[in-house]
């Protein structure tokens, strides 16, 4: 049986890599947005896809990362990309604090609370909390990122920054999926009583899933701030969270290729149909409904993990 997936992935990566040399600045920017949402989708996928936690407030962590970068960069002129780890850290710590009391909530209850979370963050930003978020105007004048002395400013430069980071994300998250941690998330998604009864600290893993997802969303926020040079609360509204949620659901919960496809469909496709402006939301809705009926696991559901076949004498030592 021949597996064509590696070929498809290679063609996709090749085409993507060459795209900025053939497309105009507008379309490169569309691809940049797709990449950014792919990263956000992948980070939400840990929480929603793997752990099965209905989290619709991911934009809150995205905002925290972006604002951390914006505030520190504009106040202290620290280079933007240096702030990426800090942006991730701030979002991660926030997730730790926020998620701990709500982590035991199930399904729709968690959904409601996380929707509340993203609204609280947005409104706090509008109200200029601590006088550092710039109110509804947001923060402008964020400096351009530099990488090894190269100043990243044009869309095609950002293309390589964003998709490079997306590639690293895919690489690391793929490993994470196929590990003790990734399996633990799947166990608690499938049946958390059985998972706990099998010795898995379910509360801990739910929390860590939130933290890992938030750290990545925070780092995506850093890139977003660098790309836009101006950020405002409206960039992180509830609708953003819904888009991320839809990317994961449409593409396939727990599936990396699925989430990337989801980002292309949800963020990229509407750009193709700009002329139908209002009708596109209708089509969008219809597709979502059709999918919930005919393909509940998403367009590209995850494939089962593969484990090496049994060794002859069952020896425990690896190569």
């Amino acid at each position: 049986m021949k597996d064509v997936r590696p070929v498809i992935y290679a063609v996709f990566c090749g085409a993507l890599l060459l795209a900025p040399f053939f497309l105009n600045a507008y379309w490169v920017d569309v691809l940049n947005n797709v990449g950014l949402y792919a990263i956000l989708g992948l980070s939400l996928n840990i929480i929603l896809g793997h752990a099965g936690l209905f989290h619709m407030g991911h934009a809150a962590f995205y905002a925290m990362g972006a604002y951390t970068t914006a505030i520190i960069n504009t106040s202290y002129q620290i280079p933007v990309l240096w702030l990426m780890p800090l942006s991730g850290l701030v979002a991660g710590v926030a997730a730790l604090v926020i998620a701990r009391p709500i982590i035991h909530l199930r399904g729709d209850y968690l959904l409601i609370v996380t929707i509340g979370l993203v609204e609280i963050v947005r409104i706090a930003l509008i109200n200029n909390v601590f006088g550092i978020t710039g109110g509804s105007n947001g923060i402008f004048g964020i400096s351009r990122p530099e990488l090894f002395g190269f100043r990243i400013r044009r869309p095609e430069h950002f293309f390589f920054l964003i998709w490079g980071f997306a590639a690293i994300t895919v690489f690391l998250f793929h490993r994470l999926e196929n590990s003790r941690f990734g399996r633990a998330l799947n166990y608690l998604r499938e049946d958390d009583v059985a998972a706990e009864g099998s010795g898995i600290n379910t509360a801990h893993y739910k929390l860590i899933a939130f933290v890992v997802g938030a750290v990545w969303a925070g780092m995506a926020g850093n890139i977003f701030a660098a790309k836009m040079t101006i950020i405002a609360p409206e960039s992180f509204n509830f609708w953003e969270s819904v888009i991320m949620f839809m990317i994961v659901l449409l593409g396939g919960r727990g599936s990396i290729p699925g989430v990337i496809l989801g980002a292309f469909l949800i963020v990229g496709l509407p750009e193709l149909f700009r002329q139908f402006a209002t009708a596109r939301m209708l089509v969008f809705g219809a597709i979502m409904v059709a999918m919930m009926i005919f393909r509940t696991e998403g367009i590209l559901p995850p494939r089962p993990r593969r484990y090496p076949a049994a060794v002859a004498d069952g020896g425990g030592d690896g190569p």
Binding site: L172, R175, L176, S179, R180, F181, G182, R183, A184, N186, Y187, E190, D191, V193, A194, A195, G197, S198, G199, I200, I208, V212, P304, R305, Y307
Partner: peptide, 30 residues
């Protein structure tokens, strides 16, 4: 109460979980 959608070997690996140590960072760095 199995994990019905996961493979048999993954179901058994769930039991091994509590005797293992590797966390997020170790998994990412392999």
């Amino acid at each position: 109460r199995l994990f019905p959608k996961l493979s048999v070997v993954e179901n058994v690996l769930a039991g091994r979980h509590c005797r293992m140590k590797a966390g997020v960072i170790a998994a990412m760095l392999r």
